[in-house]
Amino acid sequence: MQDFHFPDPKALDGAAVLSHLGIISAEGADTASFLHGQLSQDTNQQPADQARLAAFCSPKGRMLASFIVARPQTDTFWLLTDAQVLPTVLKRLSMFVMRAKARLSDASGALSAIGVVGASAERLLGEAALSQPWQLAPHAASGGHLVRLPDVLGAPRSLWIGPAEQAQALIANLPALPLATWQWLDVMSGVVRIEAATVDQFVPQMVNYELVGGVHFQKGCYPGQEIVARSQYRGTLKRRTFLLHGQAPIQAGQEVFSAADPSQPAGMVANAAPIPGPGDMAFSALVELKWQALDTGWHLGAADGPALTLGTMPYEVPLGTSDD
């Protein structure tokens, strides 16, 4: 089995401009109730001090987008999503606004998203640093908001969202972090982001979305809700997402094959990024797999493609039975 060497957590330090993300701004008196009826998350009851994950699904329960949802004001929400997915999702969501008092717009030009990680970020933030994952709070010094993200390898991570003109001042006070390093940290966190290559591919549970707080099962109807609920309560899911590592380049949307059944794909790459560090380049990926063959060999792209090694997820992934 191939050994993969991860960076020292102390080396995971600095700030990255998250240019791969876009931001939808939703404003108006009916915004919370409108989003509540469209997303897998309870936005009606979302407090001001908490960010939440959410899925936007097709009527068949397949994810068209994933969001980090922040509520900086009572009638204002920010939806962070993949920048390439944003235009189509914004258009689709806007179709359902109808008479609701809610205005949706692409705020990616006015707002910036910055990822900060490590000791330097903690020192800069000082008392403003948050301690619990998905906490949300204003950052008075910069005029933005902070979202605490799950730690990776013990390294504290936060997401800064705020006016684009203030972002440069924040970045200037921290070491530069390559975007690819931040994307690898996201992979290692086990939280999947829907990309252009994976739109309409996964029911939320296939990418463990209910395990990381992205699905609220008591909130009522939204597109695809019946299928998502059926997958949860009937035990009809046999596909889950796991962490894999490999020496060959890995991209979202690539198929993965199992040695147990080389005649057909056994999964799909959701997200992937190179492992930071010197030496030969290796990759980590979140891969949706048929879990029944979890202990067999995995290969990228074809049954005889580059070998992949099963890694360790940062949370427990329950397995069940299914004929899905």
Rank of each mutant, 00 (worst) to 15 (best):
D13N: 15
Q251K: 14
G235W: 10
W182G: 03
H5M: 10
K290H: 13
Q264Y: 00
S105R: 15
R234A: 02
F67P: 04
D324N: 15
Y315V: 06
P133E: 03
K60P: 02
R230G: 09
N271H: 04
V207R: 03
A285T: 07
S108H: 11
P7K: 05
P156H: 08
A113R: 08
L300T: 08
Q168T: 14
P306E: 06
V203W: 08
P265T: 11
L294S: 04
R52T: 15
Q264G: 04
Q84H: 12
W160H: 07
P278I: 00
P7S: 03
K60Y: 00
D200H: 11
D49C: 07
A270T: 05
L79K: 09
V152W: 07
G277P: 07
G267R: 06
G115P: 09
A197P: 06
S263H: 13
Q225A: 04
S142H: 10
G126C: 10
D200V: 07
P163E: 00
D13M: 05
L153N: 07
M206G: 06
L125D: 02
P72W: 09
L136D: 00
W160P: 08
R239A: 08
P276M: 01
P163T: 02
A11C: 06
G311D: 07
V116K: 05
G28N: 10
H139I: 05
R234N: 12
P318T: 11
L159G: 02
S19R: 15
H245V: 08
A51S: 15
S189E: 02
M98Y: 09
A48S: 14
Q73L: 14
N271A: 06
G28C: 11
P204F: 04
F257K: 06
V228E: 03
E127L: 13
A307S: 14
L153R: 12
T31H: 01
A307Y: 00
A137Y: 09
S284L: 07
A273I: 12
V152G: 08
A266I: 01
V317S: 05
E127T: 15
K238V: 13
C57H: 04
E27Y: 00
T236M: 14
G253K: 11
P72Y: 09
L149E: 09
L125N: 07
S158W: 15
E226P: 12
A121F: 07
R157M: 08
S66Y: 00
A107I: 10
R240K: 15
G22Q: 08
W78S: 01
L243W: 02
E288Q: 15
L21I: 01
H139F: 14
Q183T: 06
Q201M: 13
H5D: 05
L136E: 06
F6N: 00
P59Y: 08
M95S: 09
A128P: 11
E210N: 15
R239N: 11
S284Y: 02
V117W: 02
S263I: 01
P278F: 00
L104Y: 04
M98P: 02
R103H: 14
D30H: 07
E226W: 12
A48G: 14
F96A: 11
S142L: 12
K60S: 14
G311E: 02
Y222C: 10
G14T: 11
